[in-house]
């Protein structure tokens, strides 16, 4: 066997291995989705979406849970996006290379790896107790904001990094200030990438149960929250609660709630992908 033949064989082998790796993830996901769909799909009807929690699996609904999830998502977006994007812009465009800033950078990267339950304990102490917010939507959203901030900051920075130096130079050459350059050139050009970060952040936030349980989010809430200071429950807590019940009917409910949760995630991602494509088509150099 000649050397080039050997290399070609290696190439082929890696290709097969790569396909195998790609499919493992997809196949497992597909099995999970099909299983959940078979078990839960028929359970979803209007009543399931509009009923309050109940001890009878057949009458239990997820109204308060999905409304709570939407509240949390909106509040978390409102709190975390401006903070995260601003921090990313600062670190990438303004900060000087000094020890304080590299210290900040290392820590933000580390924060992305902290287990979510730790954020829950932090939120319980600071937001629920010291700030006196209790187990309210606001306390939950603030806690999840902390949780997703590192993701937004890191992806914002990556997106900004990808904007060519020449764009900034051209802007400066025309007499634009740093702020004008950032606002009118850099941010629009990197917005597609930033949106990707936002998708990741929201998808993370939507599935969290543990930190919210710690700050005092509830399982049985018989009213729809109407203000950020109201108590709440979210879909993942309802799912967690139902999967641990002995009666098989509750497991079906859990599967149905998982489908709704996935649907919310897919819709959110869909919106973000749509916005990103629209935005990217606009930016032409």
């Amino acid at each position: 066997m000649t050397n080039s033949e050997k290399n070609r064989l290696k190439d082929k082998a890696f290709q097969v291995f790569g396909v195998f790796c790609t499919f493992i993830g997809l196949v497992v996901l597909a099995i999970f989705l099909i299983d959940i769909l078979i078990e839960g799909f028929t359970r979803i009807d209007w009543e399931f979406l509009t009923n309050l929690p109940s001890r009878r699996a057949s009458r239990a609904g997820i109204l308060t849970a999905w409304v709570g999830t939407f509240w949390i998502l909106i509040l978390t977006s409102v709190i975390a996006f401006p903070l995260g994007i601003s921090a990313g812009v600062y670190l990438e465009e303004y900060s000087k290379k000094n020890r304080l800033n590299s210290f900040l950078e290392v820590n933000i990267a580390n924060l992305a790896g902290v287990p979510s339950i730790i954020y829950g304990l932090l939120g319980l102490e600071i937001f629920a107790r010291v700030m006196g917010l209790g187990g309210s939507l606001l306390a939950g959203a603030l806690t999840l904001s902390l949780l997703v901030l590192p993701i937004i900051i890191v992806t914002t920075r990556e997106a900004i990094k990808a904007v060519p130096r020449s764009i900034r130079d051209a802007s400066y050459a025309l007499g634009a200030s740093k702020w004008q350059t950032t606002w009118n050139q850099v941010l629009p050009a990197s917005f597609g990438g930033i949106l990707t970060g936002i998708i990741l952040a929201l998808s993370r936030a939507v599935g969290e149960a543990a930190p919210l349980i710690v700050i005092g989010a509830l399982a049985y809430v018989p009213f729809v929250p109407t203000s950020p200071t109201d108590e709440f429950t979210v879909l993942p807590i309802q799912i967690f609660n139902w999967t641990s019940r002995p009666q098989a009917d509750f497991l079906v409910n859990a599967a149905a709630a998982i489908i709704i949760l996935l649907l919310i995630t897919f819709i959110l991602n869909g919106i973000a992908v749509y916005l990103r494509n629209k935005w990217q088509n606009k930016v032409k150099w």
Binding site: L52, P53, S54, R55, G135, I213, G216, A217, L218, A219, Y220, V221, P222, F223, E231, I237, N241, R245
Partner: peptide
């Protein structure tokens, strides 16, 4: 939790204006 949830659910018929919440 399941017992308290059941009681809270029935209590709503008894006193609909009382907000009972249960955590886990």
């Amino acid at each position: 939790y399941p017992i308290t949830e059941a009681v809270a659910e029935e209590f709503r018929a008894e006193a609909p204006k009382v907000r009972v919440t249960v955590g886990v």
